[in-house]
Design a protein around this nucleic acid. Structure first.
Lengths: 194, 194
DNA sequence: TTGATTTTTTGACAAATGTCAAGGAACAGT
DNA sequence: ACTGTTCCTTGACATTTGTCAAAAAATCAA
């Protein structure tokens, strides 16, 4: 499958893999398509697959006091979508992952991944490096939340993932930025638009 | 050394290690003592060791617009202190790690750690699991920043790491919570003190 | 296309937090 | 204990952001 090659290419940007590891990995991958609004990980479901976004757009969110959906993350092409606490602990996930557009992903099950970790030291290493990579991103985002106001965070999102503005409703972006829809609307109108 | 046993115990709470791995690990550990205000990782220094806090208290901070020190993390006993982006990339660190109290740590150099990763699949696995664990913490903290106001975050810190209030100046706590010292002072006076 | 529904914008006001300034408390070094 | 320094608290006011309400714009389904 073509998409699977894309995923392996993505992985090898972290570290190159042996032919054997790549073959074993390929054998464990499954392509799956989600319709707009369909859930990859439902609220309170156990997340036992890792999904690599090939085409489309997803969001991760949770319910605040059982009422308001708070967006914590957007995933676009070449992002990895997983509710890590649930995946690691195999407990129900407090966050849901949902397709915002029709979305094609490549998945590997937890069971298969852990088998590959056992069989291939190099795949375990890849797992470590990817976890470290995501930890770095996560730390950088914390720094952003601690030091930038809403307008600056919006500015940064526009620079870093401008496609999101075209593909995601503003209400979700406001939620992600931690501000009300009204405030986002005002930030946008102040900067002579775009 | 006694401290080294503590560290190995801490690690084995993640996954048990073989005797061989533990011996190799022990051989790579060094105990080191830092005075109050001494830097474990200086600003713009390359962070090439991981430090496990045996006794004491440290903070991680950076300079905002070259003027204000912004605290992003506190480490107490049994925390791992490292500026991960610098450790991974071997580039100068944008954050510094500094002892707030006289602090005793156990360290392992990047070079030794990577050798151990090569030699022992199980130690690489431990590295992956610890990275995942810290990633989970990091995600939980992001959720907190996005959804709780200053008073709630202060409340949470009081529940989770009450010792910090006894050991760290309030100005650093305010910085960590992302609020001004004045606001923290008002939050504290409103809740009938303690 | 049309009408219904949802999303976004705008205005008025309220609440939370920041900034500046001053006074008081705690602390460190002598 | 004294004194100078730093840290913390308090007050007044400014700024940012939230909330509610209504209008305008965009989207969706038939």
């Amino acid at each position: 499958m073509h998409s699977e090659v894309d995923f392996i290419t993505y992985l090898e940007a972290f570290i190159p893999l042996s032919v054997e590891a790549k073959m074993a990995l390929s054998g464990a991958l499954k392509v799956r398509q989600y319709a707009k609004r369909e859930h990859i990980v439902p609220l309170n479901g156990v997340n036992d697959v890792i999904s690599f976004v090939v085409k489309g757009c997803v969001r991760e969110y949770y319910l605040n006091e059982q009422t308001e959906e708070v967006v914590v993350w957007f995933g676009l092409e070449k992002d990895i979508a997983v509710s890590l606490p649930s995946f690691i602990s195999q407990q129900p996930s407090h966050t849901a992952i949902q397709a915002i557009e029709p979305t094609k992903v490549i998945q590997i099950s937890r069971e298969n991944l852990y088998q590959l970790y056992d069989q291939f030291h190099e795949i375990e290493r890849l797992g470590r490096i990817i976890a470290e990579h995501y930890l770095m991103n996560s730390d950088a985002y914390i720094k952003e939340l601690q030091t930038q106001n809403a307008a600056e965070r919006y500015q940064h999102l526009m620079e870093q993932k401008p496609q999101i503005l075209q593909r995601v409703p503003l209400s979700m972006i406001a939620s992600f930025l931690g501000i009300s829809g009204e405030t986002l609307s005002r930030i946008r109108s102040k900067r002579a638009n775009y």
